[in-house]
Amino acid sequence: MKIFIEKTNKNMNKKFIGTVGKLLSELKINPETVLVTRSNELITDDIRLKDKDNIKILSVVSGG
């Protein structure tokens, strides 16, 4: 799975199958601070992800 983390401007490849909530937990990201998109569409924490998915983890906390 291709993952882009906006806050750190980091791209990563990760083998993962499970829900968005589980992915955030594995990455130690507080779900309160992010929104997640798959192929540029907003998705909720219960959505099951597949290994071929293209995921963006967008920061919602203000940067200044």
Binding site: E6, K7, L35, T37, L42, L58, S59, V60, G63, G64
Partner: peptide, 15 residues
């Protein structure tokens, strides 16, 4: 931020 994304506003994340 969900609203600005859904409305397609041009917002770049910067810190």
């Amino acid at each position: 931020i969900a609203y600005s994304l859904l409305m397609g506003f041009p917002v770049t994340y910067t810190e």
